[in-house]
Amino acid sequence: MIGKDLLQLRGMSRETITTILDTAEQMREVGRRRVKKVPPLRGRLVVTLFFENSTRTRTSFELAAKRLSADTLSFNVSTSSTAKGETLMDTARTIYAMQPDAVVVRHPCAGAPHMLARSFPWRVLNAGDGIHEHPSQGLLDMLTIRDRFGSLEGRCVAIVGDVQHSRVARSNIWGLTTMGARVLVAGPGTMCRAELAGLPVELRHTIDDVVRDADVIMLLRIQHERLGRGVLPSPREYASFYGLDMARLRTAGPGVMVMHPGPINRGVEIGADVADSDQSVILDQVTNGIAVRMALLYLLLGSAGEPTGESPAVGAAHVAD
């Protein structure tokens, strides 16, 4: 039902998303136990393979794997072998030779996880590929929204910021609309334009236009690495036109929920007081992230047979599907 890998939310069915979120709710209960560990992935190896720096996503996946009793191994490639000139496939072959059952991949190029999924029989979980998708983030955001409203159907979610370059936004847009939510988008013209044409969203130009109608305001991090490329004049200008401060938050409905995938830039996309307000669910998102990743690992691993016991021909471009 869920398939071999988790690569993207685009095209994922409503039933599959519901199963993942329901399972995540049960996994959250494990996180409330005194012994926060259950045995289903005992003896399994989960590798995190990150070609971009990330602490929170990687540690969240590792903690999720550990709570299911899997072993974890972390490859931070941005500081190791690629710096020495190794190709993605060679790195992958090396890791494959260690016989992992699943690999969690983050890569600056869209489609890199798809290639690793096609080339080896391991399970691949996309932890962010370029500006394409970040499906586990989309799922944890949906779980957080569902917790509050009971259902995603008919909810109005505003995504504010650099939507065009955001894999978080893309995963949320596909997942939320599949679940029957409406997605509004606002941001500077350089960050929300032509690329969005094919996405099922309603584009508005000012943050005030979306805050008014939203049940949920999802703020995206301003990626400082993109500043100075003609995309954005300055963080200060962004804050005054698109930052969510208290004054803007007051124009929203009383039950509005403020989300942010982190790490936050206080005073830029989110006012310091907004980040600490009762409306902010940023820390719930972190807790839900562990539960969603536990659900994904549980559902993906083992549903199709024994752990990879035999030693495969390393380097052979093994096609699993």
């Binding site: 039902m1 049960q26 559902l299 549903s303």
Partner: peptide
Amino acid sequence: YTGLEKPLV
């Protein structure tokens, strides 16, 4: 891990 669909928790 007997190759069956994962039971729901």
